[in-house]
Deep mutational scan, measured.
Amino acid sequence: KKYAKSKYDFVARNNSELSVLKDDILEILDDRKQWWKVRNASGDSGFVPNNILDIVRP
């Protein structure tokens, strides 16, 4: 599994996007496009722009 940390707050604008808060740790589900599909600690998933994410190295 790959993880990323959010650098900023992001508010979803539709139901395919995921609202995240700065410093959230997110599991990366799909990173093939500019919007990555991620899952948060609550189990919710959706798309966020990859420019707000930093890859977390294990």
Rank of each mutant, 00 (worst) to 15 (best):
V11P: 09
N14L: 05
A41V: 13
A12W: 01
F47G: 04
L29I: 08
L53V: 08
L53D: 01
L21A: 13
Q34V: 12
S42Y: 03
V20G: 01
P49L: 04
L18A: 01
Q34R: 14
R39C: 09
Y8N: 14
D44V: 13
Q34L: 12
N50H: 14
S16T: 10
I28F: 00
I28C: 05
I55M: 10
G43A: 05
N15W: 08
D44A: 13
I55L: 12
S6A: 10
D31P: 08
L18T: 02
R32A: 14
P58A: 12
E27N: 03
R39Q: 10
V11W: 07
A4T: 14
V11S: 08
Y8Q: 14
V20Y: 01
D54Q: 06
R32H: 13
L21V: 12
Q34I: 12
G46S: 01
K22M: 05
A41E: 10
K2A: 04
R39Y: 03
Y8R: 12
L21P: 07
F47C: 02
N40L: 09
V38L: 07
S42G: 14
W36M: 09
I52M: 09
Y3H: 10
F47Y: 03
R13Y: 05
D24L: 01
Q34H: 08
D9G: 07
W35Q: 15
K22W: 01
K5A: 04
G46D: 00
S19A: 07
S19D: 09
K22G: 04
S16Q: 12
D44C: 12
R57C: 14
L29Y: 02
W36I: 10
S45W: 11
L26W: 00
I55R: 13
R32C: 12
N50W: 06
W36H: 04
I55E: 10
L29Q: 09
L18P: 00
A12V: 02
E17W: 04
I55T: 09
S6Q: 00
K33S: 13
S19I: 04
D9M: 05
D24P: 00
A41T: 14
K5L: 05
N40T: 14
Y3D: 02
D23W: 07
K22D: 00
F10Q: 01
V11D: 09
N51P: 07
V38F: 00
L21F: 13
R57F: 15
D54H: 11
V11K: 10
K22V: 07
K37Y: 11
N14C: 05
D23V: 01
Y8A: 14
D30K: 03
E17N: 06
N51W: 08
G43Q: 05
K7I: 09
K22T: 09
S16Y: 14
G46V: 01
V48L: 09
G46E: 00
I28K: 01
D9A: 08
S6R: 00
E27Q: 10
Q34S: 14
S45H: 03
K7L: 10
V38T: 03
L21W: 10
K37I: 04
K2R: 05
K33V: 07
A12N: 04
R57Q: 13
D54F: 13
Y8S: 13
K33P: 10
V11F: 08
L26G: 01
I55Q: 10
R57I: 09
K37E: 13
S42F: 11
A12I: 02
N51D: 10
S45P: 07
W35G: 12
N50P: 12
G43V: 00
K22H: 07
D23I: 00
I52Q: 05
S19E: 03
N14I: 08
G43F: 04
L21S: 15
R13A: 07
D23N: 15
K7V: 06
R32E: 14
S6P: 06
W35I: 15
R13W: 03
W35L: 14
L29F: 05
D23M: 06
A12T: 04
R32W: 05
I25H: 09
K33F: 15
N14S: 14
S6N: 01
K7F: 12
W35T: 13
K37N: 09
G43L: 05
N51L: 08
F10M: 00
S19P: 06
N15A: 12
N51H: 10
D24V: 05
S19H: 06
D44E: 14
D9C: 15
A4Y: 15
I52G: 03
N15I: 06
W35R: 13
I55D: 11
S6F: 00
L18F: 05
K1R: 04
N50Q: 10
N14G: 11
D54G: 11
L26V: 12
F10N: 05
Y3T: 05
K5N: 05
L18H: 03
V20R: 00
D9P: 06
V56Y: 15
N50R: 10
S16E: 12
N40M: 05
G43I: 00
K7A: 08
K5E: 04
N50L: 09
A12G: 11
E27C: 07
A12D: 02
N14M: 06
D24F: 00
S6T: 08
K1V: 05
A12R: 10
E17V: 03
R39G: 05
D54C: 07
W35Y: 15
W35P: 12
A4I: 15
L29C: 11
L53E: 02
E17G: 09
G46R: 01
E17M: 13
V11A: 14
I28N: 02
D9S: 08
I28P: 01
E27R: 04
K7H: 06
G46W: 00
L53M: 10
K22Y: 04
K22I: 06
Y8I: 15
E17L: 04
N15S: 12
V20M: 05
L26A: 01
N40V: 04
I52H: 15
S6K: 00
S6H: 00
D9Y: 05
G43T: 02
Q34A: 13
K1T: 09
S19K: 06
G43E: 03
N51C: 13
A4W: 07
V48F: 02
R57W: 06
Y3I: 09
D54W: 07
L18I: 14
R39M: 13
P49Y: 02
D31S: 10
N14Y: 15
R39V: 10
W35H: 15
W35C: 14
A4F: 15
V48Y: 00
D30P: 02
D30Q: 10
K22F: 03
S6V: 11
E27M: 06
F10T: 02
D23P: 01
D24C: 08
N15D: 13
Y3V: 06
Y8E: 15
V38I: 06
K37P: 03
L26D: 00
N51K: 14
V38P: 00
R13P: 04
I55C: 11
R57K: 15
S6D: 00
F10S: 02
D31N: 09
D31F: 11
V48S: 00
L53Q: 01
E27I: 07
K5Q: 05
V56N: 15
K1C: 04
K22N: 04
K2V: 05
W36L: 10
N15G: 13
G46A: 03
V20S: 02
I52N: 06
W35V: 14
K22P: 02
D54T: 11
K33I: 09
N40P: 02
D9Q: 07
E27H: 02
A12S: 09
K33H: 13
V38E: 01
W35K: 11
E17K: 04
D54L: 09
A4N: 03
S19T: 09
G46T: 00
Y8M: 13
R57V: 12
N15K: 14
N15E: 14
K7C: 09
D24G: 05
A12M: 05
V20P: 00
N50F: 08
K2M: 07
S42N: 04
A41L: 10
K33N: 07
Q34C: 10
G43H: 03
G46Q: 00
A41C: 11
D9T: 06
K37A: 07
V11E: 10
A41W: 08
S19N: 11
D54P: 01
Y3Q: 04
S42V: 02
S42P: 04
S16V: 09
L29T: 06
F10P: 00
R39K: 15
P58Y: 15
I28T: 02
